[in-house]
């Protein structure tokens, strides 16, 4: 009996850490991670205490009946937004509570969520480029500037995907993407294409803005997770620095 309870809490803490690490890597904020993990632990009648940091998670699972205590630690993988994962895990956590799932079912669902496809590459590239063109329009650019912003965003995002696949440092990837976008939109400023080419130049890097780190940073700060908020905010600032550095390089190259 004692052995069984130990195995149970060991396997549960493994699941909890896997879920937490996936949420952290997919761009959830700290309170969501905490709530989801608590919900799953409570469904099995365990108490869980959690330490959340940017690159590692620690969970202590305890059980009142057996006087068992299980602590474990897990590193989280590098971050990349994937809301299909967040949404899937949130639904799974409710189904665990409502339908009394066993551990195999949970592992099956986690593996299914991991294997879910992303959108086709061409669709991602073209919709994000369309978003870049939309930003350009909102800033006051005309059709020519929108076209420039579209092309610059398309190629910049393509560069970012390629360098990310070659496992460069994350900030360096953003620098390369920003440089690529600015070299294209900067050429239109240099050659004076259209009426207001500056708008295309300013909006061609907006797809890189660290929206998730910055919003999560502020929502963590509001929630009282000051440390996590500061860490995420610093991450966002370094990304902004990488974007600005790419812009600065192209400004120096074109001398504009």
């Amino acid at each position: 009996m004692e052995k069984l309870g130990l195995n149970l809490s060991k396997e549960l803490s493994e699941i909890l850490l896997e879920v937490g690490a996936l949420l952290m890597a997919s761009g959830a904020n700290s309170s969501r991670i905490r709530i989801t993990i608590m919900r799953i632990a409570k469904a099995y009648g365990f108490n869980a205490e959690l330490l959340i940091t940017h690159r590692a998670l620690m969970v202590s699972v305890s059980d009142d009946e057996h006087d068992l205590f299980q602590s474990s630690l897990k590193r989280t993988s590098p971050h990349g937004a994937n809301f299909r994962m967040v949404s899937g895990i949130s639904r799974m956590s409710w189904r665990i509570v409502d339908e009394d799932w066993n551990f195999e079912q949970i592992w099956g669902e986690i593996n299914r969520l991991k294997s879910l496809p992303h959108y086709p590459r061409l669709i991602v590239l073209s919709t994000v480029a369309l978003a870049g063109a939309s930003f350009c329009r909102l800033f006051g650019g005309g059709p020519v500037e929108m076209l420039v912003a579209f092309v610059a965003t398309f190629i910049g995002l393509f560069v970012r995907q390629e360098v990310t696949r070659r496992n460069f440092n994350g900030y360096l990837c953003i620098f390369f993407a920003s440089l690529a976008s600015c070299l294209i939109s900067g050429a239109s400023v240099k050659l004076n294409v259209g009426t207001e080419p500056e708008y295309a130049f300013a909006t061609s890097v907006l797809y890189l803005i660290p929206g998730i780190p910055l919003i999560n940073s502020l929502s963590d700060l509001l929630d009282g997770n000051i440390m996590n908020g500061i860490v995420r905010g610093t991450n966002g600032l370094i990304i902004a620095f990488a974007i600005a550095f790419g812009m600065l390089c192209s400004i120096l190259i074109y001398n504009i």
């Binding site: 937004a81 994937n82 991602v124 994000v128 930003f135 797809y207």
Partner: peptide, 23 residues
């Protein structure tokens, strides 16, 4: 007009963040 462009801007980021199709 800006309504439409704002919508497309959100849509682009939604696809970049890989949201479920139904949303």
């Amino acid at each position: 007009e800006s309504w439409i462009w704002l919508g497309f801007a959100s849509l682009g980021f939604a696809i970049l963040f890989n949201v479920p199709l139904r949303t």
